[in-house]
Amino acid sequence: MIELKSVSKSFSSQPVLSDLSLQFEEAKTHVLLGSSGCGKSTLLRMIIGLTRPDEGEVHLETKPLSAYSLFERSQLFGYVIQKFSLFPHFTAFQNVELPARCAAWSPQKVKSRIDELSELVQLEPEMLEKYPFQLSGGQQQRVSLMRALILNPPYLLMDEPLSALDPLIRGDLQEDLLKIFRRLEKTVVFVTHDLREAVKLGHKIYLLNEGQIVQSGLLEDFQSRPASEFVSRFVQSQRSAAS
């Protein structure tokens, strides 16, 4: 379980997250939703240790995040970002195997794990011999996902992984991701600014605004019992944009 204990974060005295507390249950897909610039990435980066909270703490299981070494954290988390996360001097295969090399896996073990993963994310095996710049955006994100999953970490953090893709490919990948999440039953924290994507993928949605979670639950809750004026406006605006 990931737990944020009243964390605050400001950038040059501009508060981004203020006194925010949150728990992400095991084996569920949690979607962080909010307009761009509201602090979703900051929250995710805090969980993985790229950003330190000014106040408050992040706990993993029962221990604070700082109790884990960098290596231990790399085994606990898979992390996928929007784009530019693949190393250009490595082939897709080399990118995917990187965490396994650090963990000193045998080549046979790496090979069979990568075969398994390429089937899971539906990437043709011959694509693995290509360099990132030779792959399409969708293929690159499938490779990133494989790399995030290779050590089979219990937590998967994804920061708008589909936002840079064409709508058509994005739809396909949403379907594929849903299947993968169902099959793996990992604790997923998925960031998006798209309500429909959130509804499609998430067990539970968290709406972020002005440094706080304004409401969490299912879309039905947002519609029937909006916690504030902002919630209904947000839901309304995304609806009309989509139709």
């Binding site: 993985i48 240790g49 790229l50 960098l70 290596f71 954290r73 790399s74 085994q75 988390f77 992390y79 970002i81 784009k83 530019f84 996360s85 190393f87 990187l98 965490p99 650090c102 790399r147």
Partner: peptide, 18 residues
């Protein structure tokens, strides 16, 4: 080296000589 790659290296636990 782009920030995203630097951070990816960090997240993947690459330190020191590696």
């Amino acid at each position: 080296i782009p920030k995203s790659l630097r951070e990816t290296a960090f997240v993947l636990g690459l330190e020191g000589r590696r």
